[in-house]
Design a protein around this nucleic acid. Structure first.
Lengths: 342, 342
DNA sequence: TTGTACGCGTTATCAG
DNA sequence: CTGATAACGCGTACAA
């Protein structure tokens, strides 16, 4: 009942030729006669021969596997990036291994090690919220040849390529849009400042205000989590203060959604009294009671680009060159009813 | 600049002992002296020794990798199932490789072969829409020892374990719920009948009607795709007929969403005039203008169960037994405003 | 054009 | 308790 695969050894025996010849014939080596080549290929098919990638990998050092570490896979953003990576790399014969860090740096570290142990040819990752220190990543850089590529949530580490969107610009565009629509007192729900993406969205928000002669009021910036409840709480907090905002730019769609829910509860009209714009363009935003504006991150494209950067790395490494690439994609602002007053 | 890993060979040289002893010490073999064991482990750590899984896999035949084939990864349902599988298997040292069939049987076949070639220890899959013939899958069953596990979209093949939800019951419950709410002329948006899941939802719909003394009218069953537009078209079709329905049970959330959009356009009130209930409990359903009822498929749990079935297979196979398991999960009906008239 | 023999890193068998 | 060696399946340098 055990089913064993045929090896080049079996073929060589059957044909009374050496394994070397079989191997070369199968790999289309130029210095082999057309006749034996065809014969070998034919009998290989007959014997249902399948090349053993493990043995090949052991010899070559290339597994044709790449690893991806994300906080969670079942979010629209991350699963879309993964889709992009898979579609870029699959045609080149790579398999995609996925791991979830659960936003925990210890788990992230563990996965990093097991992936390295599995001899993956490259690692793509979006760091977890709790990843402050990056020495575990730098260590890999110093002790292995495995290329690491950050996407979206990056850390500044020399030698590591990154693919991100211009979050600064995204924040800037969203804020400017609200100004253009005539809103005067724009607040910001800022995300975890340990992550660069949220720092940049905040920076964009501030700069847009400054450039348009608005005051940056610290009390208008609320640092929230990224849940619906966090959005509800943020509204409660702001609307109990003296200067109530007339627009919300949230760094996350979920908190923006929470804000919409709480505003509705308080019978505050969107977008007449208050505008809301989120970030990520999650699928639910367009189907909401009041379709919500957001900033699209083109996640599938981000995955495609990350895949390309990896392929470039492989090529470069082959020729001994090591290049660090920084790909920055343009965010797309999606204006819907929640922020259109004019 | 090339960075090579230390091997047990390097350790054996340094310590002037044989590789066999090193290997045994590292694997905690009982018949090795505590002294040498500790010495080996210590120097291994010093030399930053990492076990080469490839070599181990070549020897043992186990890669500790499993493959998953889904139509697309960036949908809530499939990415959630994958999450469930990953979380069940990761603690056991397995890595999860994902592939997308793009609903194309040829691509599915290709991935099946490359996964087999990559020597995965098991394959999880949800068949594509275009998978009619299953001989490529049966062939694998006959020629390899690699266990295959279907989840959600299965085919009836003896020897293959499956993890599904009771779609029949889901369809039955949804329809019964509409009856209980007092709706009299319930129509059904049925999905692609090549997939068992849609057949079963339809069967459940019919049986519920019969059991409650309602007539099954063929003109009330519309076979649609699973897009929003398909839902819009279905409403157009039904509302141009003589007997207009007062309730819609859609086998897909997206078509149900399309229906809601078209009904709103026609100023038909939900749930007063028409009830709508979908299937899958996609995240957007709860945030819609009118929160939509749906049938939850507990996708993460489905993934967990699939992972467990796989682990059982491995264990069984170890003891020579081969068992076929059929896990059927219970659907959960989620009632929201779109179908509550009472 | 083809064959021989070795190495990739482990584990397992058989001696001792 | 430890050592020598074969085997896993493949690719390739060196020979012929």
């Amino acid at each position: 009942m055990t089913k064993k695969n045929a090896t080049i050894y079996d073929i060589s025996k059957k044909l009374n030729i050496s394994v070397a010849t079989v191997s070369r014939a199968l790999n289309d080596n130029p210095r082999i006669s057309q006749a034996t080549k065809e014969l070998v290929v034919k009998t290989a098919k007959e014997m249902n021969y399948k090349q053993n990638n493990l043995a090949k990998a052991l010899k070559s050092g290339e597994t044709k596997n790449i690893g991806i570490i994300v906080p969670y896979i079942n979010t629209n953003f991350f699963s879309s990036v993964i889709r992009g990576i898979e579609e870029e790399l699959s045609p080149h014969g790579y398999h995609v291994i996925i791991c979830q860090s659960h936003e925990d740096v210890v788990t992230e570290k563990k996965h990093l090690n097991t992936l390295l142990n599995a001899q993956v040819d490259g690692i793509f990752m979006s760091v977890s919220r709790t990843t402050i220190d990056t020495e575990h990543i730098q260590h890999i850089l110093n002790t292995t040849n495995t290329p690491i590529i950050f996407f979206d949530r990056k850390k500044d580490i020399p030698g590591i390529s990154t693919v991100t969107i211009d979050d600064y610009k995204g924040g800037y565009m969203a804020t400017e849009h609200l100004i253009d629509e005539g809103y005067k007192n724009i607040c910001h729900f800022a995300g975890d400042q340990n992550l660069e993406i949220y720092q940049n969205r905040l920076r964009g928000y501030k700069q847009a205000l400054i450039d348009r002669q608005f005051q940056v009021k610290e009390e208008n910036i609320v640092f929230t989590g990224s849940s619906i409840d966090a959005g509800i709480d943020a509204v409660k907090k702001l609307w109990s203060s003296t200067s109530v905002p007339d627009a919300i730019f949230s760094a996350s769609d979920s908190t923006a959604l929470g804000a919409c829910q709480e505003l509705k509860k308080r019978k505050i009209k969107i977008p007449q009294e208050v505008a809301v714009i989120g970030f990520s363009n999650e699928p639910f935003t367009q189907f909401m009671e009041l379709p919500m504006s957001s900033v699209d991150q083109t996640p599938v494209l981000m995955g495609n680009m990350a895949g390309q950067v990896f392929l470039d790395h492989i090529k470069d490494n082959f020729s001994g060159v090591s290049i660090e690439k920084k790909v920055v994609l343009a965010p797309k602002i999606i204006v819907r009813k929640s922020s259109k007053r004019k």
